[in-house]
Amino acid sequence: MKFPANLIEKARDIHSDRPKYCFRLDKVGASGLKVPIRVNGFVLLGNVNVYTSLPDNRRGVDLSRQNSVVYQVANSARSLEEFVILSAEELLDVIPYSDAAEVSVEVDIPQDEANAFGSYRTMISSFISRADKRKNRTRVELVGITACPCTQELIRTYLADIGESTSIPATHTQRSIGILDITLKEDHISHRDLAAIVEESMSSPTRTLTKRPEEASLVMLSLFNPKLAEDVVREMLFLLLERFPRIPDDAYVISSVRSLESVHKHDIYVERSAFVGDLRRELEGSKRP
């Protein structure tokens, strides 16, 4: 049954009513929209959140207008970054009573064949206000391997004590989830560059398609490059500063690792969050004698 069009015009628009309690709302919109987006020749299904602010004198937002915007922009956007920026800008055009808009997309990005068909997860968002306040956020999450240097040193000491020696002492390894999250006023940082930093900071990468020689290579690489979860978080921060020397001091960074421990019944978690300017000062201070 189709609702009669003439009755729609007669019905009161509840959304435009004055609310019982007149508070401004920061975010109103749809969470978890499934939107197909083109990324590097692939059509990926993105998990999209779309929000606009709501003034204190309006009861509700026009949700269908919001949703229409992101599906329309997805047809022409050439990148994830362009998708969120153009969507947020368009929302302010079609929702005139809102003074701010935010759009985010989360999607798994395929890696190339050299990475044996692996992937990493990225979340990209853009916040824009009518006062021209902007926040562009890029977050990547990638799985790698960490090998424990502490246990390796104990095994090395034990072998030396009993007269044995080896150039690659054993230790426990585990899959570790690294996250690098950057928010800044300027353009988004490349999610591929951030994913490369996370992967390089691990003891070794993980791969999807491997045969025994490749598996042995990954294990040997991790044993030659043992790292604590703390080491990985610090290395991600260092590589970020090294590879993006022009990133502004007021950019905000979150670097974290969750180590899915193989010898414990719990995980290990490490995190550092700070403004880039503070990280630069810490790094310079550590170089002084």
Rank of each mutant, 00 (worst) to 15 (best):
S176L: 09
P213I: 02
N47M: 06
L218N: 02
G60I: 03
V219E: 14
P149M: 07
A5K: 13
N47T: 06
T122N: 03
I145F: 09
S262D: 03
D267V: 05
L237W: 04
R24C: 09
P19E: 06
R280S: 01
H172Q: 01
S259C: 06
E81L: 09
F224I: 15
I182R: 02
E200P: 06
A100C: 04
S76P: 10
V35S: 01
A30D: 14
F127A: 05
H191E: 12
I177E: 05
E284D: 12
S87T: 05
S273M: 13
L184R: 06
L80N: 01
I145E: 04
Q174W: 05
S255Q: 01
P213K: 09
L240Q: 07
E141P: 06
H191R: 08
R234C: 08
G46T: 06
P4M: 02
E282G: 09
F117H: 12
P245L: 03
R258Y: 04
S176F: 07
I268Q: 06
F224M: 15
L7G: 09
S256P: 11
V48S: 07
S79Y: 02
P169N: 14
L237S: 10
E102K: 13
Y71F: 12
V39I: 07
D250N: 00
E153S: 12
V39W: 01
V198P: 01
V73K: 00
D93V: 14
D187C: 13
V94G: 10
R24N: 11
R18S: 15
L25W: 07
T208V: 11
K133V: 13
S190K: 07
P4K: 06
P289T: 15
D193S: 13
R134W: 00
A274F: 07
L54M: 11
D56V: 13
L180Y: 06
N136P: 04
S201Q: 11
R134G: 02
I37V: 01
S167F: 04
T146P: 10
N47H: 08
I268C: 09
L279S: 00
E153P: 04
